[in-house]
């Protein structure tokens, strides 16, 4: 493009010796730009040689001839120093804290960055056996971070290796702990499991300390019974429900029977009480009637017996009654005397 442009101007211009002038005319700004770009590239190279950037999500180790000489971490702590001192080759490592721009010796020192974030390690599910010899399927996960990038770099190198290592020790540690308790504790005892996992986390941190890894949390994501148990569970659930249904129905019958018999009882009592009351009332009537009779008849008892006898005759001796009359009787006297 550069040449074409020049040639085009060359042909277009009629002035003598125009080539030099035109060449200069076009070359000026481009040269400047090229100069600027070149300068920037050189600056960049110098910058990258003398400085390195630690991103907010990173921590960095600085190597000099493959030997770790410097680490840039989130925070310094006595434990960190201690863990560095425990490894002879890391005894002289400088610990820098923070993020941003850091200085290094160009060409001699190289950097490698590691995540300073909380990382998730999700295991595959697997079977464990509890104290009461039951099989459970557990699926757990762990949250961990690279605590000491120098140790991490020399012992594990990368996250995948860390996961393999975590898998090994978490699996065996969990197996060990779960073998101490019964299945129902693993399934349903939240507090026990919480404390157990805390203990497992502490134990694993002890083991992982030399690898520069800190496990923040280990949790069981899923606790399942093996799929071959599902049919049994479903059967049990079914029979439990059937039992509940039966209970409801027989409770209904029981209640109904209670209500019915109570109603029957109540009705009987109501009627019996009414009978009692009625008899009382009738008795009162009888008594009152007797009292009235007695009051009247006591005025002349002898006459009353006579009067009453006559009335009784009227009632009793009717229609074809056969009567045998004693001639000495009062009746005969009346009959025959006159």
């Amino acid at each position: 493009m550069y040449n074409n442009f020049g040639n085009f101007n060359n042909e277009a211009n009629i002035q003598p010796n125009p080539v030099k002038l035109d060449f200069k005319k076009i070359k000026g700004p481009i040269k400047t730009i090229a100069l600027v770009i070149g300068l920037l590239i050189i600056l960049n190279i110098i910058f990258n040689s003398f400085f390195f950037v630690v991103e907010q999500r990173e921590q960095v180790i600085v190597r000099q001839f493959n030997e770790v000489v410097k680490i840039v971490v989130d925070e310094d702590s006595p434990e960190l120093r201690e863990s560095l001192d425990s490894v002879p080759q890391l005894r002289n490592v400088d610990v820098l804290v923070g993020k941003g721009l850091f200085f290094k010796i160009p060409f001699i020192q190289t950097t490698e960055s590691f995540k300073s974030l909380l990382l998730t390690y999700d295991t595959n599910k697997r079977e464990v056996i509890t104290r009461d010899k039951k099989k459970l399927v557990l699926d757990n996960y762990a949250q961990w971070r690279i605590k000491n990038p120098a140790l991490f770099a020399i012992s594990l190198k990368n996250e995948r290796a860390a996961h393999t290592r975590l898998d090994d020790i978490i699996y065996s540690k969990l197996n060990e702990e779960i073998g101490k308790v019964d299945a129902h504790v693993v399934i349903a005892d939240k507090d026990y499991m919480y404390n157990m996992l805390q203990k497992v986390t502490a134990d694993i941190n002890q083991l992982m300390q030399k690898s520069g890894v800190e496990v923040v949390d280990i949790r069981i994501k899923r606790t399942d019974l093996p799929p071959e148990n599902y049919n049994n569970i479903y059967n049990r659930m079914k029979t439990e429900r059937e039992r509940a249904a039966k209970t409801y129905r027989s409770e209904g019958k029981e209640e109904a029977q209670k209500i019915r018999s109570e109603a029957d009882r109540e009705a009987t009592v109501i009627e019996a009480k009414a009978y009692e009351e009625a008899e009382k009332i009738k008795g009162e009537g009888d008594a009152e009637a007797l009292r009235i009779y007695a009051e009247a008849y006591n005025k002349d008892p002898e006459f009353y017996s006579f009067y009453r006898t006559l009335q009784a005759y009227k009632k009793a001796l009717k229609d074809k009654t056969k009567i045998v009359i004693d001639p000495e009787s009062e009746f005969a006297k009346y009959l025959f005397k006159n």
Partner: peptide, 24 residues
């Protein structure tokens, strides 16, 4: 059943009252 029993009871008592009144 309960109202029926109450009805019966009332009937019995009324009959008794009637009997009483009648006797007197």
């Amino acid at each position: 059943i309960i109202p029926k029993a109450r009805g019966n009871a009332a009937e019995i008592i009324n009959k008794a009252v009637a009997y009483k009144e009648k006797r007197i």
